[in-house]
Write a protein that binds this DNA or RNA. Structure first.
Lengths: 191, 191
DNA sequence: TATATACTTGACTATTTGGTCTAATTCCAT
DNA sequence: ATGGAATTAGACCAAATAGTCAAGTATATA
């Protein structure tokens, strides 16, 4: 129970920032959605920024962990499972896009603290993908390659695909882009 | 001379929005940088939003036209010139990223007018790339393929690559991603 | 030159913003 | 139970926000 007020704030802040961006996120709206009064908030956090950074970090790390860490614990089928994860659109929020990309775009060039935080989060995401690729190579599902670079490219292609849909409103475009990415990656499969 | 006030506003607005986003762009700063008073601005534009949309549309359309339309006017070497344009980092502002991506991320899910405008601009960019690919196929530099889909993928990969750099601060990551994209596209070259 | 139209000036307004402060309440160990 | 600390409540504040307006000046055309 001790965590509820803080957690309610973290949850509401993430939602509000994901929807409206950091600069567009109004404290009053966060507080209203969280059902928490201003004084309580400033007891738990020293500023809007600190609260937002905490929300971003905690929520996104959790998401990425849930999505990718279990793939790493497999003993085979790494690449197939990774491709399936990319193709799975049920978890994607195409209207709002990718929270990582959103905040990087908005804040990385404006605030050093956001810059540092987002850099770490983006690295973490790429690390998951690199580690999965390394596993796939280890078990000889893939031929050896520069997995750091490939993970970078995969991440970029996925972020770009999500952006396309946010621009066009057409989810099929994500599917189409991922299909091309898949074809490319299947070229690394060992026969 | 008749256009100077309006043009000064368009230029300053684009810069401010590119740097701080639409919501973060303060009218006072735009006016200060443009050297224009508020009343003049509201003579030329009915609102901050209308001015920003005009600035975005005019500046980005011009940029894309300058970058891609001359490639279309070539008579050969379409793919090579396109790849060279992708690899050219001298025009890229990695700190601020891509203005199209920035505004799509920030505004497409928040405002219908921004959504419509950015959808058109994004389509325009993809159209240029598709048309260049079609030309390359026409002159038999490339084998036939679904150029609409390929243009979508290329755009996504490029936008994602720019985002990577904005997140990491390392321009080499753009080069690395584009290198992989180039390898992939070279697979379409006709021997 | 007269006059109407286009444009500029800058003070003013209403609202929203993040943040502060003090008092009240809840919680918990003794 | 009681004293002290943690937490919550919500009124309050200064700054910043986009937008308004009446009055002025330049410009063009008759």
């Amino acid at each position: 129970m001790k965590e509820t007020t803080r957690q309610k704030l973290i949850d509401a802040t993430f939602e509000e920032v994901f929807s409206h961006g950091y600069q567009g996120a109004a404290l009053v709206d966060i507080l209203r959605n969280a059902g928490v009064h201003k004084g309580s908030m400033y007891h738990h956090f020293s500023s809007k920024k600190e609260m937002a950074l905490a929300a971003i970090q905690e929520k996104i790390s959790t998401r990425n962990f849930e999505k990718y860490s279990k793939i790493l614990q497999l003993s085979s089928g790494y690449l197939e499972t990774l491709l399936a994860a990319f193709k799975d659109t049920t978890q994607r929020d195409f209207k709002r896009g990718c929270p990582i990309a959103n905040i990087v775009q908005e804040m990385s060039n404006l605030d050093e603290d956001f810059n540092k935080t987002m850099k770490l989060i983006y690295e973490e995401l790429r690390r998951y993908i690199k580690d999965i690729l390394d596993k796939a190579i280890e078990v000889k599902e893939m031929r050896a390659c520069d997995t750091k670079k490939l993970a970078l490219f995969i991440t970029a292609a996925l972020e770009g695909a999500i952006l396309s849909v946010k621009a066009s409103g057409n989810p099929q475009e994500y599917v189409d882009s991922v299909e091309i990415l898949e074809d490319y990656l299947r070229g690394f499969i060992r026969n």
